[in-house]
């Protein structure tokens, strides 16, 4: 009788550990490559999880952003059920993102995903102003052609110009 009770005492914690391990969430993964570059300061991060949601409940994810690979300090930038987020308005610099799945109660979670590094390096301002200047010139010329054309066509009934 004593022996059977011992077996029971050993088996119960083992069973509990097994159930917990089985319920551990799979680690979600980014769809993006591990390093991305952007010259416009915006990027879309998408992710997926291999695990089917228990009881058809939609999985909940947490997404963190940091300026270093150790994520210290970090900012929680998303908590919810979506599988993507659009980030914009980033200044030049390196940004690290990592992701994990959490339970609705917040008491269980997966390990953190492999991080994604986003390098933001905006176009040179010289290039931007050069294109701005060219655009302004082309636009003014277009307005000029239209206005001069109208004046000429109104002056001459046959509409000749140039």
């Amino acid at each position: 009788m004593k022996l059977r009770r011992w077996k029971y005492l050993i088996a119960m914690p083992a069973l509990f550990i097994c159930i917990n391990l089985a319920a551990q969430y799979a680690v979600p993964a980014f769809v993006n490559p591990s390093m991305e570059k952007t010259e416009s300061g915006y990027i879309k991060l998408s992710w997926r999880t291999a695990e089917a949601a228990p009881s058809n409940a939609a999985p909940i994810f947490e997404l963190q952003q940091a300026d270093n690979p150790d994520f210290d300090p970090n900012t929680l930038i998303y908590h919810g059920q979506d599988y993507a987020t659009f980030i914009s308005g980033l200044p030049d610099g390196n940004y690290y993102y990592r992701l994990r799945r959490v339970s609705p109660e917040g008491d269980r979670y997966s390990d953190w995903s492999t991080p994604v590094l986003v390098q933001v390096e905006h176009h040179a301002l010289e290039l931007a102003f050069l294109l701005f200047g060219i655009g302004a010139t082309v636009f003014l010329l277009t307005v000029g052609i239209v206005l001069k054309g109208i004046r000429s066509s109104e002056e001459k009934q046959d509409g000749t110009s140039i």
């Binding site: 914009s88 308005g89 905006h122 701005f132 655009g135 636009f139 277009t142």
Partner: peptide, 24 residues
């Protein structure tokens, strides 16, 4: 999102006349 309110966002500076000419 500091660059969204910056007057010196290069891609946005390029986009102004790009979009205007596209619209025309």
């Amino acid at each position: 999102k500091p660059m969204l309110i910056s007057v010196l966002l290069p891609a946005a500076i390029m986009a102004i006349f790009n979009n205007l000419l596209f619209g025309i």
